[in-house]
Structures are given as C-alpha cells and as structure tokens.
Amino acid sequence: MEVDKGKGEAEETRKVAEADRDTVTLKSSDGKLFEVSKEAAARLSTVLAGMIAGGSIDDNGTDLKQIGSEALENVVDYCNKHANSIPSAALISSSISFNTAPFKEPEEWERKFVDRLSHDALFDLVEAANFLGMERLLDVTCHKISEMMKGKSPDQIREVFNIKNDYTKEELEEIRQELAWAFYDD
C-alpha cells in the first residue's frame, strides 16, 4: 500500500505539470510527433477530450497507432486552423449530435482545407476523424466525399469506395427494376 501511494503521488505531480502545458503531443503510427493546442483538441475531439480529462496523455507523445502521419498532420492542421478561425461556442453546439442537429454547411476555409486533399488523404482523414470522435471534421470530410459521389453510377461508386459487388446479376436486375425511377435521367 505504501508503495502504491508513492506512485500515485508521482502521477499526481506529473498530471499537474501536464495541466500547465497548453499543448498536447500526439504520435502517429509511424512514430512522428505533432503538437496541438490542448484547448482545440479537447473541444474538437471527444476521444482526445476524454484522454486529457482522464490523464492518459503522454508528455513524450500520446500513441495513436491507428492514424498515419499524413492523416495526423491534417488532423492537427485542422485543429490549429479551427482554433484561429471561429468562435468556439457556435461550433460546439453544431457538433453535439450529428444525426439530429441541423447540418451546418462547411465554412469557406473548411472547404478549401478538404479541397486540397488527394483522394487517399481525404479517405484517411475520414477514418482518423471517425476514430478520434471529431464530429465536425467528419461532417466536413463526409460532405466533400458526398459531393464527389453525385452523378456517379453504382459501378463508379464501388470503385471509389473500394467495395466488392456482392450481388448476383439477377439480384442487380431485380433492384434496378424495383427502383427503376431512380435510374432514369430527368
């Protein structure tokens, strides 16, 4: 018990030291380190907010094994841009519940931010945003992908999303007939 208590005290001290810092260090799957504003990270990512509150942030770089360095760089970049661009209150309220809250169109800078990404980088960023619980970033990236889908056939969509066609020819024909109206061009 005595030993445990000592360790607890040490942890307590480290937490305090950490709380004083206004950035957190994140480590990508390939070992690169990124600094991000603690306030922005906590505000934009439910997962990072939980880690900060729970004290599981590592000073030497919190391991995010699921996220590659390119995606993490984009995440950090987004957080920093966000911190500088918009008053926070509006954004927090817009991202509380993404299924029912009215969807807010991407801001101009958010549009530019996703427009410059390559196809792969965009999809990696969606995964990273999903993993980190960053609902606003997920909204913005998903909105971009949805725009890319307009006017595409099911075949083209499968290619974009790397999805295997698991229907038989007959089933596909059946679906086409059932939903014939949706396949007409107006």
Partner: peptide
C-alpha cells in the same frame, strides 16, 4: 471506410441518388 463515416456521407446525398445506391452492395 468505417460504417459511421459511410452513414454520414450517405446522409448528405439526395434521396434519388440514394435509391440508386441500393445497388452498390
């Protein structure tokens, strides 16, 4: 993509396109 993200993407699309996308998988 994870299902959560697919769900979010599909929510953005118009109904007609979504009916067509039932043929994806």
């Amino acid at each position: 993509l994870p299902l959560d993200a697919v769900y979010e993407i599909l929510l953005c699309l118009p109904a007609k396109l979504l009916c067509r996308l039932r043929a994806v998988c």
